[in-house]
């Protein structure tokens, strides 16, 4: 009886875990494309929002700290992407308006596995946007070395 309960509990967690991982691995490329497409779906009003921390010199560094805590696990330490999530150095991201990045970050791409990050205060989400945008600026300044 106890073995049956233990097996039931194990299956309860292992089943969904395996199914999830399988889906993650098989749908990687399509998922990345559709994640970028999500940026294009940003409502006009959200896209036009200005980053209130645009002039804050500390924001990219604070955003980098937040990125390492919350985002690097999926997007990779250097934001170049992983099997779980797309690169944030891609042109689609780097050319996106700050408001669009903020909107996708706040709403997530729930059906494709990106969580909603509105649990972070707005200011921290804008700090993350500044960091993500700084990746493109750093690459332009020195294309041979990844930005820090």
């Amino acid at each position: 009886m106890k073995s049956a309960i233990a097996l039931g509990i194990a299956l309860l967690f292992l089943g969904p875990a395996l199914a999830q991982t399988e889906k993650e691995q098989s749908g990687g490329a399509a998922k990345k494309e559709s994640s970028y497409a999500e940026l294009a779906q940003t409502p006009e009003k959200a896209r036009n929002r200005k980053n209130p921390l645009e002039g804050d010199a500390e924001a990219p560094a604070a955003g980098k700290k937040l990125f390492e805590r919350h985002c690097a696990e999926c997007h990779g330490e250097d934001a170049a992407g992983s099997p779980k999530a797309p690169s944030l150095r891609a042109a689609a991201v780097q050319k996106a308006a700050p408001g669009a990045l903020f909107w996708v970050l706040s709403n997530g791409v729930v059906r494709r596995g990106m969580p909603v990050w509105s649990k972070l205060p707005e200011a921290q989400r804008w700090q993350l946007v500044r960091y993500v945008q700084s990746l493109g600026a750093a690459a332009n300044a020195d294309p041979t070395s990844p930005p820090r």
């Binding site: 309860l12 967690f13 969904p16 199914a19 999830q20 059906r111």
Partner: peptide, 14 residues
């Protein structure tokens, strides 16, 4: 509590 994020829209917990 043992909590697992199955998908972006489903979390299960034991």
């Amino acid at each position: 509590e043992i909590e697992y994020g199955v998908t972006g829209w489903w979390t299960t917990e034991f």
